[in-house]
Amino acid sequence: MGRADPGAVRWTNKLDDLLLDEELDAVAFASTELAGGGRAHAALASDKHVLVQGPVAFTSAESDELVGLAERRGRRLLTHSPALLRPGVLRLHRLLDRGVLGDVYYVHASRAARREGDGPDVLWDLGIETVALVLDLLGDQPVEAVARGESYLGLDRPDVVVASLGFATGIRVYLHLSRLDGETAERLSIVGSEATAVLDASEQQRGLSLYPKRQAPGMFDELALDPGGHIRFSLPEDDSTRLGCARFLAAVRSPGDLQNARKASATIAVVEALGLSCAGNGAPETIAPGTELPDQNVIAFRS
């Protein structure tokens, strides 16, 4: 993103050409792999704003280092996860903000994808985006991680992981991740005192449904629901890429903090804690406090 003629497009296959261009304000990396190898670090050190699709780094230590560098250089560092900007997720955020679900009791998230042969680590491959989504929706960070895994293919890492995250509010998140299932599936349920929301991101069943509880006072009285009925929301087309780019441009053009990048670092730290618990055969791992989020982002408590 430069200040030269907006109609002119220049091409290069050398990162140094971008970093030495004083008219260039920002560099976007299409994956964590491309941002690695010191490239994101070099971009920030060259006073470029940086956008990374996916986690900003492969370890929380490296991510924290990038956040610190961005803060010292006065640059913006953002991570773009399309899953956080899907229409169903944005609608679910609005339901939570309005208190439609009531007090959140627990969250259940499952994700499965067929991976042939010696594929990537299931926690990193499937867990990182799932954890990021849960933390984004709850607006909070867990204090404890517990995970157990099974390796059915004889690899040195699990193919299936069952895990849970405990929060200081009493909310608990249950995770099920598998790289052996025959089909790709992604489903998240948030169970509250007044309603349960179910977000299905599977290719064949994309949508968001709301299941009100009959004892919920007043909120759904105007809806003629049959016993056990539910509300299924009509969602617009996925516009997550445009929204992610717009958010990055807005951050570059206006003063702001690095909360997005710090939350991304916290997500990596949670996945690392799950990995340690899994390696320890389910021993609980305490998660150190990370970024403090604004009070209005904490959506529910359970006594």
Results as ranks from 00 to 15, higher is better:
Glu272Ser: 03
Arg206Cys: 04
Thr286Gln: 08
Ala61Cys: 00
Gly275Cys: 07
Glu183Gln: 12
Ala42Ser: 15
Leu18Lys: 04
Leu276Lys: 15
Asp159Leu: 02
Ala185Asp: 08
Ala197Arg: 00
Ala264Cys: 10
Ser277Val: 11
Glu150Gln: 12
Ala145Tyr: 01
Pro142Gln: 00
Val191His: 12
Leu199Thr: 09
Ser31Lys: 03
Ala57Ile: 02
Asp125Thr: 06
Lys213Cys: 02
Asp159His: 02
Ser254Trp: 03
Val173Gly: 08
Val161Cys: 07
Arg253Thr: 15
Ala43Gly: 07
Ala264Lys: 01
Arg247Thr: 14
Leu34Met: 05
Ala26Thr: 10
Val67Thr: 09
Val270Ser: 02
Leu135Phe: 04
Asp226Pro: 03
Ala28Lys: 01
Cys278Leu: 11
Val191Cys: 05
Ser164Asp: 00
Trp11Glu: 11
Thr169Met: 01
Gly119Ile: 00
Leu293Ile: 01
Leu293Val: 01
Glu292Met: 04
Gly36Lys: 10
Arg114Thr: 14
Arg10Tyr: 04
Glu62Thr: 11
His230Phe: 10
Ala43Lys: 07
Lys263Ser: 11
Leu133Ala: 08
Ala8Pro: 00
Ser46Ala: 15
Lys213Ile: 09
Ala288Gly: 05
Ala279Ser: 12
Ala42Gln: 13
Ala28Phe: 06
Val162Glu: 15
Gln296Pro: 00
Pro236Thr: 05
Ala35Pro: 10
Ala283Gly: 11
Arg206Leu: 07
Ala279Gln: 11
Ala57Glu: 01
Glu144His: 06
Ala8Gly: 04
Ala185Arg: 15
Leu24Tyr: 03
Leu90Cys: 08
Asp200Cys: 01
Trp11Gln: 12
Arg172Thr: 13
Leu177Cys: 05
Ser303Glu: 13
Arg75Phe: 04
Ala251His: 06
Ile171Phe: 01
Leu69Arg: 15
Val162Cys: 10
Tyr105Met: 14
Arg86His: 10
Leu153Gly: 10
Leu208Val: 03
Leu78Asp: 05
Ala300Gly: 15
Leu155Arg: 12
Glu116Phe: 13
Val191Pro: 01
Ala261Met: 03
Ala70Ser: 13
Leu274His: 03
Thr184His: 06
Met1Val: 14
Pro255Asp: 01
Phe248Leu: 08
Leu34His: 02
His230Glu: 09
Arg187Glu: 13
Val252Ala: 08
Gln205Leu: 09
Gln215Ala: 14
Val134Gly: 08
Pro284Phe: 11
Arg94Asn: 07
Asp97Gly: 06
Leu177Asp: 13
Ala8Ile: 14
Leu85Ile: 05
Gly139Arg: 02
Leu78Cys: 08
Ala30Gly: 14
Ala83Cys: 07
Glu62Met: 01
Tyr152Lys: 07
Trp11Lys: 10
Gln259Ile: 08
Val146Cys: 08
Gly290Ile: 13
Val100Ala: 11
Val122Cys: 05
Glu150Ser: 12
Glu292Arg: 11
Ala250Lys: 14
Pro82Ala: 03
Val173Glu: 03
Leu208Ala: 00
Gly228Cys: 07
Gln53Glu: 09
Arg72Lys: 14
Asn13Ser: 15
Arg148His: 06
Gln204Lys: 04
Ile299Lys: 15
Ser63Gly: 15
Arg247Asn: 10
Arg206Phe: 03
Ser81Trp: 13
Arg10Gly: 14
Gly117Ile: 01
Ile171Thr: 14
Arg115Trp: 11
Pro87Gln: 09
Gln204Met: 03
Leu276Gly: 05
Ser189Val: 15
Gly192Val: 09
